[in-house]
Computed example of a mutant assay.
Amino acid sequence: MPALFISTMRTAVPLVAGWLLSLAVQAGLDIDSTTVTGAVTVALALAYYLAFRVLELAGTRLRGTALQNLAGVLLGWARPPAYPSVNDGLPPLTGNSYTSVS
């Protein structure tokens, strides 16, 4: 489930940031049809992404590769993203592991 949250946030944050930047460029709080259209577009894009990511995860957990592949294709890529676990990172540095260059 953490991968779903991470991948959703990686999609939602740029969409919201772009929308907020477009509002900042206008430098006003007038709510016109363009602003409403932008907000609805962001909300629908996030709902679409989240719906198909949940279906993709359900297909993975139920070992239903057809469901997983269909949801993946509708997201633009047939496989879900794979994020490295915390344990796959670099080993921790020790006090004497840094060497200087002369």
Rank of each mutant, 00 (worst) to 15 (best):
I31R: 11
L44M: 06
A24S: 14
T35N: 06
A47C: 09
L15S: 02
A66E: 14
Y83S: 05
L20C: 08
Y49A: 01
L70E: 03
S97Y: 07
M1S: 10
T41E: 09
N87H: 10
R61D: 12
A43L: 04
V25P: 06
P91E: 12
A71N: 02
N87D: 13
T65M: 08
N69D: 12
A27K: 06
Y98S: 09
A71R: 00
Y83A: 05
V13D: 03
L90G: 05
A78S: 15
Q26C: 08
A51Y: 13
T41P: 00
Y48V: 08
G64F: 09
S22Y: 10
L57P: 00
V101W: 12
L70R: 07
V42E: 00
L4M: 15
T65G: 07
A58P: 01
L93P: 03
A17T: 06
V86D: 06
N69M: 10
D32G: 14
Y98H: 15
S7G: 09
R10H: 09
P84S: 02
N69Q: 14
S7V: 01
S33E: 07
P14V: 02
V40H: 04
A66V: 11
A71I: 00
L15W: 04
G28C: 11
Y49D: 03
T37A: 15
P91Y: 08
L93M: 12
V42I: 07
A17N: 06
N87M: 13
A39P: 02
V54K: 07
T35V: 13
L62K: 09
T37K: 15
R10W: 03
L90S: 13
A12H: 02
A58E: 05
A12I: 01
D32W: 05
T99R: 11
T8D: 07
G89V: 02
Y49C: 04
T11G: 04
F5R: 03
P80S: 12
P81S: 06
A27Y: 05
A27C: 10
T41H: 02
F5A: 10
G76R: 14
A43Y: 02
G89M: 06
G64P: 00
L29Q: 10
N69T: 12
G59W: 00
L4K: 02
T99P: 05
L29A: 15
S85K: 10
S97C: 08
R10E: 07
V42A: 00
L23K: 08
G95Y: 14
V54S: 10
T60F: 10
G76D: 06
L44Q: 07
L21M: 14
A71E: 00
Q68N: 04
G59F: 00
G76T: 11
V73E: 05
L74N: 04
L44T: 05
R61F: 13
Q68M: 11
W77S: 15
V86F: 11
S85C: 08
G72P: 01
D88H: 07
R63E: 14
G28M: 07
Q68T: 02
